[in-house]
Simulated scan of single mutants.
Amino acid sequence: MANEVEPHLIKELFDELQKERFVTLATVDHVSGGPNVSAISWLLAKDEQTILFAVDNRSRIIKNISGNPFVAITLVANESTYSIQGKAHIQSERIADIPLNLALVELKIDEVRDVMFYGSKIITEPVYDKTYDPAAATRLDNQVMNAIRKA
Rank of each mutant, 00 (worst) to 15 (best):
A136E: 12
D129W: 10
E93W: 11
I98S: 00
R21C: 12
V115A: 02
I84Y: 03
A136R: 13
Q18I: 08
D114R: 10
R58L: 07
Y118I: 14
Y128D: 12
T27A: 01
E93M: 10
F70K: 15
V115C: 06
K130Q: 13
F22D: 03
N142E: 15
E12G: 02
L43I: 11
I98K: 01
G119F: 10
T74P: 04
P99M: 01
P7Q: 00
T50S: 07
K11A: 15
H30F: 15
R149C: 03
A88Q: 06
W42R: 02
S92N: 12
I122C: 03
L75H: 07
R60W: 06
Y132S: 07
F14K: 11
T124W: 07
L52M: 04
E16C: 08
Y118V: 15
V5D: 00
E6Q: 10
E16F: 13
N78H: 14
D15A: 09
Q18Y: 04
A147Q: 09
E20M: 05
D141N: 13
Q91G: 02
A54I: 10
E16N: 13
V31Y: 12
E79H: 14
G67Q: 10
D110V: 04
A136D: 09
I84D: 01
S120E: 09
I10C: 08
M145S: 14
D29K: 04
K46Y: 07
T81W: 02
A39G: 11
A26D: 03
M116W: 05
